[in-house]
Design a protein around this nucleic acid. Sequence first.
DNA 1: TCCCCATTTGCGGTTTTTTGCAGTTTTTTA
DNA 2: TAAAAAACTGCAAAAAACCGCAAATGGGGA
Lengths: 248, 248
Amino acid sequence: MLKQERQAFILHQVNLHNQVLSTSLSQELEVSEDTIRRDLQELADNKRLIKVHGGALSLSFNEPHHPTHVYAHTQKKLIARKAAPLIQNDMFVLTTGGTTLIELARHLPPTLKATFISGSLPVVLEYTQHPLIDVILIGDKVSKNSKITVGGEAISKIRQIKADICFLGVNAIDAELGITDNDWEVVQVKKAMIESAQKVICLTIAEKINSSQPFHVCPVEDIDTLITELPPEDPRLEPYHKKGIHVI
Amino acid sequence: MLKQERQAFILHQVNLHNQVLSTSLSQELEVSEDTIRRDLQELADNKRLIKVHGGALSLSFNEPHHPTHVYAHTQKKLIARKAAPLIQNDMFVLTTGGTTLIELARHLPPTLKATFISGSLPVVLEYTQHPLIDVILIGDKVSKNSKITVGGEAISKIRQIKADICFLGVNAIDAELGITDNDWEVVQVKKAMIESAQKVICLTIAEKINSSQPFHVCPVEDIDTLITELPPEDPRLEPYHKKGIHVI
DNA sequence: TCCCCATTTGCGGTTTTTTGCAGTTTTTTA
DNA sequence: TAAAAAACTGCAAAAAACCGCAAATGGGGA
């Protein structure tokens, strides 16, 4: 791994989380803490971050508006942290759009080498920051509010793919009604993705559990794993355990 | 294997992944690391990539805040203002990537109703802000350097289109050598776009006039209109007038 | 086809950079 | 105030870069 690549990752992390720990960076990047310290020193010399005991802070650390924004996204960060280890080297991964999926892109270890396929512009843009990941963009008409490609072309392209895993960001899930959505065209794309993947991982914040939307995507039995910010033993997740879904 | 071929491959890799390692290039291309180093040195001398210890980085590796960027902005706004009136209602418009094309998206009247087709993520994202414009995204592998889709899939999709007009952002133009570019894959996409459009409009800042890059896109005769920030009577534009190109 | 010559490439030896480790010092925290 | 964690220092091994030179390659021209 190149030194610049490592430092770019550190900078990305510190700008994203407002702070980083030397210890965790050392583990994620698979280098010694000494190397991390030297990187932080160098970045601090170039005024890209502020080095402190135990790690570093972003330059905008003292600005008031950031921390609250970070707090609002902690749920999605938690989900991303749980989801990241499911992806292994050389996998082909399908992903839908949504802020949770963007968060997942940010939480992947920089050493991961895989191919990601998506129709979501913000998600794909995030993956272009990652050094080792190949990105395939599904083309078609762009849905303006979700910034995702939809339509027959997109669906037929997805059908041609045989992916190892599919990460599904959902708007509503209910143990009986299944996964539902409010955009008919997006639903068609999600259906195709589910069929093209060997395993389906569903990502959602707890707020959306036991809610429903007009258009049906799939029954909950079609998903293999459900990831939320809740601990797996939370009573709200009980129905999904019962259905044999792997809840983490 | 020829040196140019090898360097083209290296350039392709660095544009696609934002970085390359000397060791892996040496293995992939089956030449010594010394040869790779010499190639990288040569490419770095020609400002095609940034050479670092252990490999090389793409030019856009750390380019979020560029100093000359602000100045170029006003020129690009001027170009966008000239280009916008060429688009009429219900047209099908092909566009390449680049900051000039993003600027064009921002300068379109909100009452314009048209269909835009592009493989550039930033450009497409900009068009999603527009209320009446339909956007078609060309899918394929994403080049990390330019954030544009490249490859056979993208080209064959473009060939299926018959557009009214094509806006071509160019890196280098010369009255004799024609339009040239530094990314082989991007060149293939641009060629396809030119062939699929009835009219070709070339957008470029004056700085790029009478410069050239290694890969040939098309002769200047293939373009219908040339738009720069200069007044049409500027002497630098004289050769293009002579060739019968509409210069504005 | 063969030969010549400029260019390109690989290799051995040396220098530089990077990185991890051991020992020591400093900072934090309970 | 003492134990623990982190930082600093110097050093040595490994990796990469550099340098010079000889071999190989390849593209005209006879």
